[in-house]
């Protein structure tokens, strides 16, 4: 944690740390503080008068069925994306970790999608699933499924989940592969000597040793699904049809920057911040416990 050897003096380090500190204060702490403050205020319809209303915005928020719907939807969306993205990645990582020919090529071909922007992922999925031009959409129509994700709620949700999960697979793959490679060979060999094979060895030895990676990725994937998929959803469905794919993130954006309801939007921001604080705290607690072991 701490170094033994350090340099003397305090002027230089203060100068060195200053740029980052200034940016942090101006673009992180100040806005965050402002969000907290605004969440306790309410503006009149013309944006002229502002009054302090305490926790009213929060009370309204949690009494609003639209908000609660959106919250439930977000949780379901996050879970689906995380499970799908991590499951696929783990499967691929397990096989890419095997001693097979051409595994370097496989790895490269599975790593490059890390570079795809969430918005571009949406474009790719439009090509597959667009009611008029999409290849997969045509296939579905051919077997008699009426496909138009721009009109059908469930189909819309499926599309955003698929596109969002798809984009995250290679990130998870990189970490799972690194996690698998960091498992000491001797442990696996010991398990083989004990007679554990195949699925059993994977479930009783590999998976528990992969738990730290797994936990880290769960948190990352939830944060990703909750926030970074904004672009994917915005590009695919804009939250529609109706509000079928409107996650909390889209709602903050719409309420704050389109409908200009600052009080409510700030309250929503604060709720999201609390969510991240909880997730981060969980993660660090877990890592802390792991390091203590």
């Amino acid at each position: 944690m701490e170094r033994r050897t350090i340099f003397a003096g305090w002027v230089l380090p203060v100068l060195l740390v200053a740029p980052q500190l200034l940016l942090t204060v101006f673009f992180f702490l100040w806005p965050a503080g402002r969000a907290m403050w605004t969440s306790l205020e309410r503006q009149d319809a013309f944006g002229i008068r502002t009054e302090f209303v305490g926790l009213d915005n929060f009370a309204d928020l949690f009494a609003d069925p639209l908000y609660l719907d959106s919250a439930v939807r977000t949780v379901g969306f996050c879970a689906a994306v995380a499970v799908l993205a991590m499951g696929t990645a783990l499967l691929l990582a397990v096989f890419a970790d095997r001693d097979i020919r051409g595994r370097a090529i496989y790895r490269t071909l599975l790593i490059w999608p890390y570079a795809i922007a969430p918005a571009i992922a949406a474009v790719l999925w439009v090509l597959l699933l667009h009611p008029q031009i999409g290849l997969v959409a045509h296939g579905l129509k051919a077997i008699g499924i009426l496909w138009d994700y721009k009109l059908n709620d469930a189909q819309a949700m499926t599309v955003v989940i698929l596109a969002s999960a798809w984009k995250q697979v290679s990130y998870n793959f990189i970490f799972f592969l690194a996690g698998l490679q960091s498992i000491p060979k001797a442990v696996i060999e010991a398990a083989r000597m004990d007679g554990a094979r195949g699925w059993r060895r994977f479930r009783t030895i590999t998976l528990p040793l992969l738990a730290p990676t797994m936990f880290f990725l769960i948190v990352v994937n939830i944060v990703y699904a909750a926030f970074d998929t904004f672009a994917t959803i915005q590009a695919l469905t804009q939250g529609g049809p109706g509000k079928a794919t409107e996650t909390l993130m889209l709602k903050v954006y719409r309420d704050g920057l389109i409908n200009l309801d600052l009080g409510s939007s700030s309250a929503q921001s604060v709720v999201l911040m609390l969510g991240i604080v909880v997730l981060t705290a969980l993660q660090f607690r877990f890592i802390g416990r792991r390091n203590a072991e």
Binding site: F28, P31, A32, R34, A35, T38, V223, F227, D228, F230, M249, V252, Y253, G256, L257, L262, S265, S266, S269, L272, M273, I276
Partner: peptide, 8 residues
């Protein structure tokens, strides 16, 4: 992250 504090 930028997403949770966009408005402020």
């Amino acid at each position: 992250p930028v997403e949770v504090r966009i408005v402020p």
